[in-house]
Every structure is written in structure tokens, then in C-alpha cells.
Simulated assay, not measured.
Amino acid sequence: VGEYWSPGDLQSMLDYINATGRRMSLFDACLQANFSRASKEGENFDLTTILQGTLVEALPELAVTLVENHDTQPLQSLEQTVEPWFRAHAYAVILLREAGYPCVFYSDVYGSSYTDKGTDGFDHEVTMEPLPQLEALLNLRTDRAYGEQRDYLDHPSCIGWTRSGDDGHENSGIAVILSNGSAGTKRMEVGLHFAGSVFHDYLSHHQGKVTIGEDGWAEFYCEAGSVSVWAKA
């Protein structure tokens, strides 16, 4: 894995990959920049563009996806933070989709605190809290996020996708829906083999239940500014 940090400049990353004979994967600085911008713009960010201009979209087999790292955290050389409210959204994207090789940041698992100098020349104390939903998202990747992916990246403030599951992982298959604005709903297909099954939100953000229709489709829900991952109960 290499690091050629050029957020917003996908072509430079592709040039680097070609210059090294496609022997190296790269951290997807463009995706991380999209996460940062989405977290700061809130409902003004068009979620249908979250993957646009990224390495994971252009060359997924060589993309190492991430939400933050030691350089992008506050007061560091490449500071480009992702606001706490959007971190679960971002981790859902890198952990629960087919493409990319995800890298999880230590501070999002365990939290951290440190003191460093700001641009004003003074010392500042920074505390980064662990992400409460991360363990559940990692378990979902391990146990449930398998099979065909169907994308529903079709609304500027509410997007989703499903994974149909496979025979090698019992009860695998999920439906992911996330919003950066008001509460959202999205009709999505998980597959005929789930007909009649009851799904619940594995992250416990939405307290209802969803029953999959005989056609393998259902209406899935998420709260305002939140993410829900629906899986077989």
C-alpha cells in the first residue's frame, strides 16, 4: 500500500498507479475528502456524488478506503476532518459495500487525546471519542455484507444499497439507508429468498421492523441525519 495524497485530484493518483506498474494500492484521498466535505456541508451536500471522482469508483481493486487517519485528524499536516455525526455514514460506505479495501482508524475504535500546536502558534488539547456504532458495523461486514450489491444512489439527501447475501454466511444480506437531511425512506430489493423475512435496524437507530414482500422488495427507513443497516432478525 502506498500513499500519494492528492484529495480532489484523482488523475494524479491514477498516474502514480500507472507509473508504478499497478503494483501498489493507494489510500483513497479523494473519497476521504468527499466524506469531509459531506460532513461539513450537511444537507447541502448531494449524496448521489459521494463516490464521484474517487479511486474506489475508478479502480476499486487498488483503492484502500478510509474515513480518517493520523494525518487528517485535527492539528495535523493534512487536516481534513470528518465531523462526528457523519462518521457512521462514512464507515457504512467503506465497510458494507463491495468495492475497496477498508482501513479503520485507531481513534475511531479506541478514542484518543493529545496536545499539539495550532496555526495560531498555541497548544491545543484535542479529544477524539470512539465511534459507538463501529463495532456493530465491523460485525456486519464480517457476518452479513455479502452477495450481489444493488445501488439506490438516487436522491441528494437519502441514498441506499442492498447486499443479497450468500450461501456461505448464514443470515447474510443487508439493506443500508442513510440521510444527511430529514428522515428518509427508500424502496429497495434484497431478493426473493428473503420474502416474508423480518428485518430490523442492526444499529438500533430506527425502532421499527420491516417485513420483506413476496417480490423481495421492501420499504426501508432511516432517521434524520442518520444511517440504518437493516438485516434479518
Score class of each variant (00 low, 15 high):
Ala88Tyr: 06
Ala88Cys: 11
Ala88Glu: 02
Ala88Thr: 11
Ala88Lys: 05
His89Thr: 06
His89Cys: 03
His89Phe: 14
Ala90Asp: 05
Ala90Gln: 02
Ala90Gly: 05
Tyr91Ala: 03
Tyr91Leu: 11
Tyr91His: 05
Tyr91Val: 02
Tyr91Met: 11
Ala92Asn: 03
Ala92Leu: 04
Ala92Tyr: 04
Ala92Val: 12
Ala92Lys: 08
Val93Lys: 00
Val93Thr: 01
Val93Trp: 02
Val93Gln: 10
Val93Tyr: 07
Ile94Trp: 00
Ile94Arg: 02
Ile94Glu: 02
Ile94Val: 12
Ile94Ala: 02
Ile94Tyr: 03
Ile94Leu: 03
Leu95Gln: 00
Leu95Phe: 07
Leu96Ser: 06
Leu96Pro: 01
Leu96Cys: 06
Arg97Asp: 00
Glu98Lys: 13
Ala99Gln: 14
Ala99Trp: 08
Gly100Ala: 03
Gly100Glu: 07
Gly100Asp: 01
Gly100Leu: 08
Tyr101Asn: 01
Tyr101Val: 08
Tyr101His: 14
Pro102His: 07
Pro102Thr: 09
Pro102Arg: 01
Cys103Pro: 12
Cys103Thr: 13
Cys103Leu: 15
Cys103Gln: 02
Val104Phe: 10
Val104Tyr: 08
Val104Ile: 14
Val104Ser: 01
Phe105Cys: 04
Phe105His: 08
Phe105Gln: 01
Phe105Lys: 07
Tyr106Asn: 14
Tyr106Ala: 12
Tyr106Val: 10
Ser107Lys: 00
Ser107Met: 10
Asp108Tyr: 10
Val109Gln: 02
Val109Ile: 15
Val109Thr: 10
Tyr110Asp: 07
Tyr110Ser: 11
Gly111Tyr: 07
Gly111Leu: 04
Ser112Gln: 13
Ser112Cys: 15
Ser112Val: 12
Ser112Ile: 05
Ser112Leu: 06
Ser113Glu: 15
Ser113Thr: 11
Ser113Ile: 05
Ser113Tyr: 15
Ser113Asp: 13
Tyr114Arg: 09
Tyr114Met: 04
Thr115Val: 11
Thr115Gly: 09
Thr115Cys: 11
Thr115Ala: 09
Asp116Val: 10
Asp116Lys: 15
Lys117Thr: 14
Lys117Arg: 06
Lys117Glu: 11
Lys117Phe: 11
Lys117Val: 01
Gly118Gln: 07
Thr119Gly: 15
Thr119Ala: 15
Thr119Cys: 12
Thr119Lys: 15
Asp120Leu: 09
Asp120Glu: 04
Asp120Cys: 14
Asp120Val: 01
Asp120Ser: 08
Asp120Tyr: 13
Gly121Met: 02
Gly121Leu: 00
Gly121Ser: 01
Gly121Pro: 03
Phe122Glu: 09
Phe122Trp: 11
Phe122Ala: 15
Phe122Arg: 14
Asp123Pro: 09
His124Trp: 07
His124Glu: 08
Val126Phe: 06
Val126Ser: 09
Val126Met: 03
Thr127Asn: 09
Thr127Ser: 06
Thr127Asp: 08
Thr127His: 11
Thr127Trp: 04
Met128Ser: 10
Met128Lys: 06
Glu129Gly: 03
Glu129Trp: 04
